[in-house]
Design a protein around this nucleic acid. Structure first.
Lengths: 115, 115
DNA sequence: GATACTGATATAGGATTCCATATGAAACCC
DNA sequence: GGGTTTCATATGGAATCCTATATCAGTATC
């Protein structure tokens, strides 16, 4: 019964990870080499077959020149707007075109239903 | 040799988690109950004795009305400014006074040294 | 003193991440 | 055809997250 976690990475995050890697021209092997992860594990994370520990994910996003920031929920739209804006101006061809929140497309807004 | 991950949560994040819980008047038991985690595990995470999986941490911060957002590294200062501003205006007595980046005080900026 | 609440710690077991190595498929090149 | 690169998958094992229960110290209240 207990919904024990999401048990998966938000799809948006996975896609971002994937696109960020491709935009650098890095293979899974190359990305894994830079953080000390076997290619198999990078594959498992990207395809959503495994949920990494927080420190593992943090290493990955940092090598890809990103960061995971803790923000008040009410500020998430503003932050996303900031990111979207940044990409339009500076990172035009640098990356993907995605800026969706971690919310939205993991299909489980309130997974525990204890309202 | 291989610096295998940070192996711990950034201190700033741990402190934020702790303060956010206290500001709600929740005990570790209460917080754990809301996400399906035993009190012992909440304690282990808050004291830095364990690094949670990403989905576990995401559940925790969401119950505390926060979110983990992936942002380009160059945007981290701007996002932090946004958060700091928000707290000064809306969340005056709502929470802690911290807004430091996930960077800075974990003592390991470039843990793999492969520059 | 007795009871209750909070937080940290201990042990033991199950589940999963993570590591190391190898293989197969698909898409490229020569 | 042969070779290379990329990615998904398989197996076996080590590390650790996570669960469950119990104990202990500190604080507060009766």
């Amino acid at each position: 019964m207990k919904p024990t976690r999401l048990h998966k990475l938000p799809d948006a995050l996975r896609k971002e990870l994937h696109q960020a890697r491709l935009s650098r021209g890095w293979s899974q092997l190359e990305l894994g080499r830079r953080v000390g992860l076997p290619q198999m594990h990078v594959s498992a994370i990207e395809t959503g077959r495994t949920v990494p520990r927080f420190d593992t994910l943090l290493e990955l996003v940092r090598v890809l020149d990103r960061d995971l920031v803790l923000v008040p929920r009410a500020l998430v739209p503003a932050v996303n707007a900031l990111v979207r804006d940044y990409r339009r101006q500076e990172g035009k061809a640098d990356d993907v075109g995605e800026e969706t929140s971690l919310y939205a497309d993991d299909g489980s807004e309130t997974p525990r239903g204890t309202m």
